[in-house]
Design a protein around this nucleic acid. Structure first.
Lengths: 151, 151
DNA sequence: TTAGGTGCAAAAGCTTTGCAATGCT
DNA sequence: AGCATTGCAAAGCTTTTGCACCTAA
């Protein structure tokens, strides 16, 4: 997703393209695929335009989230973080997390397509993104585990 | 997990069993398997003991989380929610979260059995628990959405 | 007895909002 | 021109903390 596409989506939705919004969009595109907090975005925007207010960033981020351009992620560190959505190449977040060594194994595949269709039909819910965390034991830890093993 | 087990865990960890804590434990057990916010818990506790302070609830919840009796869930709606841990029976957490009104729709079904088998085989990973969050728009919000709609 | 727990109120820290001024379209 | 948008400051929110008093063990 590039600037032009985002601007187009805003226009179609009846939002005005202000300089502040353009700079904010630039700033978040500069983050690439990395997640960012509103404050981090604010500081990056301020480098180019020091007069922009924090509330403008919050309001812009709100709109962009609503439009499905960015998604909110939570890392339980006290503030919300966001990430650019890749709508066409699905960029889902699947993680296998080992309870013993805390290793995080990333899953590239999207196993959930069938599941999604079912949810959209049965629950009447428009899916924009999802996040799956699987907790358990990686093979190494399981091998070396003392005591009771599970199945 | 019942009151006695929880009390036992507290005792073993050197925490005192105060009336406030006992009432709080009763209140969260009354929530069953539903998630609850600290405020919801606070109000339930107040029904029985109006003099209990909010900070006591916060502090008790903190301890219970640390002991592994409850788990924190974040739905990005401004406050933390908690859920009783079920140690032995697998208790999956599936939630549909509306990006607009923050409504959380719980999914009772476990759609992920096939997926699990695949992961265990392909990734050589012993699954103990998982958590799936699906973000999108509930039907009401989607109906009233301004501008571009997605499919 | 005494270390830990409680209630209150105030502080913290992220986020939202009211309002007058400003600026897209 | 008309109405959305902005910046500022103030308010709102949940959550944490300081402190004097209390209490379970």
């Amino acid at each position: 997703m590039d600037q032009q596409q985002i601007v187009e989506i805003l226009r179609k939705s009846g939002y005005k393209l202000t300089p502040q919004r353009r700079i904010t969009i630039d700033a978040l595109l500069a983050k690439g695929n990395e997640h960012f907090s509103v404050d981090e975005l604010y500081r990056q925007v301020k480098e180019e335009s020091p007069e922009v207010g924090m509330s403008t960033i919050y309001r812009t981020v709100q709109i962009l989230e609503e439009m499905g351009i960015i998604t909110r992620r939570n890392f339980d560190d006290g503030f919300a973080r966001f990430e650019l959505c890749e709508r066409n190449e699905k960029h889902w977040h699947h993680h296998l997390i080992c309870l013993k060594c805390n290793k995080v194994i990333e899953m590239q595949d999207d196993y959930l397509e069938t599941l999604e269709k079912e949810i959209e039909e049965k629950k009447n819910f428009i899916i924009m993104n999802h996040e799956l965390k699987v907790y358990g034991y990686c093979s190494d830890c399981y091998k070396n585990m003392k005591g009771v093993k599970f199945d």
